[in-house]
Structures are given as structure tokens and as C-alpha cells.
Simulated scan of single mutants.
Amino acid sequence: MFSALFSHSAASTADFSHLEQASVEFRDVNKRYGDHQVLNDINLTITPGEVVAILGPSGSGKSTLIRLINQLENLSGGEILVDNKPTGRLSGNGLRQLRSRVGFVFQQFNLYAHLTASQNITLALEHVHGWKPRPAQERALTLLENVGMLEKAHHFPAELSGGQQQRVAIARALASSPQIILFDEPTSALDPEMIGEVLLVMKALAHSGITMIVVTHEMQFAREIADRIVFIDGGQILETAPPEQFFRQPSHPRAQRFLQKVLNPLHQELL
């Protein structure tokens, strides 16, 4: 389904233009807001093409962790590397190229209300990456088709359901052929009946070659698509494990309590 999505990228001279798959490495990463320590000495390596699910209770630092990767938040300490290149001091063209290689899907879709679905995708291609209108439009239509939204190409966000808007947002995040895509609780703003259509798109994207880091509360989804679970609480990584190991026999007491709370009685069905 997604085999054609990564075959074309805009010309660029920035450092990240050569990436096909990309690793992400956190080295002693810290994040503070004033006196509040949100992340504390995070060390984590995500390998190229890996699908990682970030789990943990609300307020544990999950969303902050992924927002640091493409500088939606600034580091307070430590270093983040994408494909072995530090990202903390990038600016200008370097930062734009990094963000073209690191797609981001937000909780609240963040589509431009005055633009159609296709225009939401072509906007950055034309005005940031220098694409001509016709290839940008062709790219947008291909992406919309791949997420099952081609018939809505000329609809505005207000004319779309939440699940449809999020599928457009995923298509937009894929527009610049990223090697990493970050999902920040992509189903949390959706009605239950709309969640499935977004998860199906994400399942199709998983293991296509792109590196995926997914902050989610969808436990069954995480178990099915992730190569690895990273459990965070209190701004610290408490456990990393393959999904089957994590869901059947988590080693950290806090992870055990978390699963008992969020999966019971579903937890028994998973065992």
C-alpha cells in the first residue's frame, strides 16, 4: 500500500537529504519547564525501520519525548541524534530539512481550516520544499488515495469526520518522504467508532521501512504493530521490552500496576 510513498523527495542540500531509514538516539536527555523536571536522563536508541510504542500514564513525559526529536520542544540538557547527527543546534535550512525527514502527526490534526485536504498536503511541498504545483498535486492525490481519502481531496476539514481529518494529517506528514514519523496519541481526539480507520492506516504503514515512534493509549494496537515497547513514568524510562514480554510479564512494578489498571479485564484476554 505504501511502497510508492518513499520513491520521490524534493531536492535539497541539507545534511539529512540522504536518509532512507533513520535511527534516533537519546543521550542523557533532560527537559525542564522552570523547576519542573519533565524528562530525566533519557537514554534510548531506536534503530532504522523500527516501530516503537511509547506507553505510560498521562503526564509521564511521553509527548515531550517525541516533540524534542524535531525541535517542537527545546532540550534542557543532553543530545538527540538522527542518523548519528546531532539535531539540537539546527536552524534555518538544516532545521527545515530535519522536519521534512521527521513527519509528525498531532492529536488535534492541525489541518488548515481554509484549505482543502489536497491543499493541506501541497502547501508545504510548494512553499517549503520548492515543488511545482502539478507534481505537488499529483503527490497529494497519491497520498490521499493510499489513506483512503481520494474522494475527499477537495473537501475542507469542517466537511470531514475526525477520523478522516487524521488520515489527511497522516498523508500530509508523509508528503516529504520522511524516514521517521512521530505519532502523538493520534486517536485520542477521536470518537471510538473513528479510531479503527486511523489505526488501519497506521498498521499498513508499519514495517514499510519508515521508522515509527508512536505515543499511544491503544494497548492492543501497540501490541500488534510495535517491535518494542518503551514504558515511561515520572520522566524516566522504566522498562523496554518486546510487546509479548511487556504485556505478559512486565518486569517493573510500576509497569505491572499500569497494565492492571488499563487492561483489566482486557488484560486477562491478552494472556
Rank of each mutant, 00 (worst) to 15 (best):
I170Y: 08
L123N: 09
M219C: 02
E185P: 03
G130C: 04
V168E: 12
V168A: 13
I170S: 10
S208Q: 07
Q166Y: 13
L238W: 12
L144H: 08
G234P: 00
M202Y: 01
Q137M: 15
P135Q: 11
L123W: 02
E159L: 07
H129S: 14
L143K: 09
I181T: 10
A175V: 12
G162N: 08
L125K: 09
D184F: 01
N146Y: 13
Q164D: 02
E138M: 14
I170F: 10
T187I: 02
I180N: 08
H127S: 13
L182C: 12
T142A: 14
G234D: 00
V128R: 04
T116Q: 12
R139C: 11
P135S: 13
I180R: 08
Q137K: 15
H155V: 00
P178C: 03
I170D: 12
Q119D: 14
A136D: 12
A140L: 07
E185C: 06
A175N: 10
K203R: 15
A169F: 06
E193R: 07
E126D: 05
D233I: 03
H155W: 06
D227M: 05
K152Q: 14
Q166D: 10
L123R: 09
P133L: 12
I210P: 07
I229M: 13
I210K: 09
E126W: 02
K152L: 14
A204E: 14
S161E: 08
L205C: 05
Q179T: 15
H154W: 13
D184G: 00
H127T: 14
T142W: 06
F183M: 04
M149I: 10
L200G: 00
K132T: 09
K132G: 10
Q137G: 15
L174M: 11
L182Q: 10
T187R: 03
S176V: 13
H154M: 12
P133V: 11
A204R: 13
A136G: 12
H129V: 05
D184T: 00
L205Y: 06
A136T: 13
A171Y: 10
S118Y: 09
I213Y: 07
E224W: 01
G148P: 11
I195V: 15
F183R: 00
S208P: 00
N120Y: 11
E218W: 04
E185Y: 08
A204I: 01
K203W: 00
G209W: 04
V168R: 12
Q137L: 15
Q179M: 05
N146M: 14
T122P: 11
K132H: 14
Q165N: 11
N120W: 09
A189Y: 00
